[in-house]
Design a protein around this nucleic acid. Structure first.
Lengths: 233, 233
DNA sequence: CGCGTTGTTGAGTGGATTCAATGGATGTGG
DNA sequence: CCACATCCATTGAATCCACTCAACAACGCG
């Protein structure tokens, strides 16, 4: 079960530089010093909030990976976004709306719960927060646009390769990738089997490597060559 | 060629109630009275701005329909969003970014060009504008999320039907739908032929009607019954 | 009228899904 | 430590949905 492990100290938080409070240079700022959001922990697969429920808190991810998903009545589901350390989410309440998606922990995670009314007051008094949130919304929107291009205009292999490039980078480094085949499919609009087939094929060809939940792009050029033949990525 | 037809009078603009200035109740507000964005007209197919170019203006659509599109190097393209009267677009500059998509007029259109620096100043002085823009960003993001579900989790017929329901409503009214088959395809991630086949089929079955660029859902229940059999919409 | 553009329809192909069986890893209890 | 259960990934075979290619029809326009 998710539970609260304490009250956060935003002013001295380790991930403050990633958060919407990053720009508040004055660490002695009264507002931020007196703001103590609950820090909550979620095990993998536990739900942070549900679509349609009243959005009276926003959240910042401190640790772990969280997925935002939408579901169809028939059970098919789509991962809308993957969240990493420092990401702000669940802010529909700012527009007076209920949550538009469900947030579920992919790995064990730590989350700061930011009550909407407190955050709103804080934002009103500190324009830097307002600014930081605006930057994030615009960035989120841009990424959503990019994702629509992926889903609408690319084929299976192209989507999967794009995703790996984005997640792992192109420099051959190993990156933790805590997603199951099912989840990669739900993110990219593909089935388990399709994801598995492409990954297996690329592994056989030595283009990527995988080990204990981590992934490496061994030969980015060759992968791009193989998948994105005519400039399709 | 697109051209400027004059300076807008925001305070007395006919679509002010739809714009980000709607909440500024004080019509005598000095700021808004002295703000005179250029009003530009674009013929169908003309470009408002291009992806990658410097985003030094945002825009409000006064009249017509504009599409935001992204293109792949190989020519495939995806319509990210359709804009209607009152919509705000092209605000990437607020995050210091270049435009992330290309904006093209679908029909003859009128657009207000809002220089970024002026709009920023206006926003800083008038929290209502800030608030209105925030609401829009969040709404835009929610719609983008909905679209990701469409593109990632639904089949061709389901996507097309959802789109028609959203555009035409469910009450059997006629709505102008100034999109070609190609554009509907680009919006929904389908080909011309697929769109045409479904629409022809539904017309033959008397579920929808089309005439001179307008569309009507004649039998919403039957359409939903046919397409969304197991709760897939 | 001829022409270009857009929409329709058919036939064939192919890509991704579905269905099904197997394999591998992990964990639990005896 | 092994037997067993469970979960996830892999692989094959068959199916189906949407795409591609192609021909033709409809429409608007000069």
């Amino acid at each position: 079960m998710p539970h609260i492990i304490g009250q956060g100290q935003c002013a001295t938080c380790q991930i403050r530089h990633l958060s919407i409070f990053a720009e508040l240079e004055d660490v002695l700022n009264e507002d931020i010093r007196s703001f103590h959001p609950s820090v909550m922990v979620f095990d993998a697969a536990e739900t942070v909030y549900r679509q349609q429920s009243v959005a009276n808190s926003a959240f910042t991810l401190r640790k772990g990976v969280v997925k935002l998903i939408k579901m169809l009545p028939n059970g098919r589901s789509q991962i809308i976004r993957l969240l990493r350390k420092g990401d702000l989410f669940g802010f529909d309440g700012f527009a007076g709306e209920a949550y538009n998606h469900t947030a579920i922990a992919v790995t064990n995670s730590e989350v700061c719960r930011l009550p909407l009314n407190e955050l709103m007051a804080l934002k009103k008094k500190n324009p830097e927060i307002e600014q930081a949130m605006m930057m994030r919304w615009i960035r989120d929107l841009r990424e959503a646009e990019d994702m629509m291009l992926e889903l609408g205009a690319k084929k299976a292999g192209e989507r999967l390769a794009s995703f790996l490039f984005k997640w792992c980078g192109e420099n051959g480094s190993w990156q933790e990738l805590p997603l199951s085949r099912l989840e990669m499919g739900e993110l990219l609009g593909l089935t388990i089997e399709t994801v598995s087939r492409f990954l297996s094929d690329w592994k056989r060809k030595g283009l990527i490597n995988e080990s204990r939940g981590s992934m490496q792009i061994a030969d980015a050029d060759a992968l791009r060559e193989l998948v994105c033949m005519n400039g399709s990525c």
